[in-house]
Write a protein that binds this DNA or RNA. Structure first.
Length: 200
DNA sequence: CAGTCGCT
DNA sequence: CCAG
């Protein structure tokens, strides 16, 4: 199964079967018990519509002071370990010898979206970013290495895995909208996106 | 004033 | 949607 290539991004469609998806969701629920979802502020004072948390050595965080990685949840506790079920996916698709130091958990409720941005808060851009989609379908938008210009969109479905590496490591990307309730994986609807990154 | 993981 |  060779992945679909869109602007250098590897799109592994249907990578995870339903049982694997269910197992992942169970592992994530445990993570979220000690590291509950929160809504970060952008450096420009707007609340993000996506709610998030993290697992691993570092968690991604944003407030008035900017975007950064922090070693603890806002509640003061260290981020829980990245579940083995998640690490297995990284080991299979990343082609990177290092282990991910952050598993960002993005929760998209009804109406949530994510504007075009780059993942560039890491110090190491050699390893790819691996993104795992669970739950409702999302309209994923792929831009360019710099802002502006034409974009391409495609629908990501539960179980799809995207690898952003090499020359596409810093490609602008975002989510225009989700189809709330389109998947039965999460009984109350919504989408979970996991983003695995080597940070340091 | 520039930029924007947001906004129109 | 999608471009700015």
């Amino acid at each position: 199964m060779t992945p679909l290539l869109v602007r250098g991004l590897e799109i592994h469609q249907g990578y995870l079967d339903r049982a694997s998806q269910t197992a992942l969701v169970g592992d994530l629920r445990a993570v979220l018990e000690t590291a509950p979802l929160f809504s970060p502020d952008t450096p420009y004072g707007r609340k993000m519509s996506v709610r998030m948390s993290s697992a691993g050595q570092y968690g991604w965080f944003s407030d008035r002071s900017g975007y950064r990685y922090v070693p603890r949840h806002p509640n003061g506790t260290p981020w829980p370990a990245i579940p083995a079920s998640v690490l297995a996916i990284w080991n299979d698709v990343s082609g990177c010898a290092r282990s991910p130091e952050c598993c960002l958990i993005n929760w998209y409720g009804e109406g949530a979206r994510m504007g075009l941005h780059q993942d560039r808060d890491e110090t190491d851009f050699d390893c790819p970013v691996v993104s795992i989609s669970l739950g409702d379908e999302a309209l994923f938008r792929i831009g360019n290495p710099t802002r502006g210009g034409k974009t391409e969109s495609l629908w990501l479905r539960s179980g799809d895995v995207v690898v952003m590496g090499g020359s596409a490591r810093l490609t602008y990307h975002g989510v225009d909208r989700i189809r709330f309730g389109s998947s039965a994986l999460l009984p109350r609807g919504g989408r979970i996106n996991l983003t695995l990154r080597v940070v340091s």
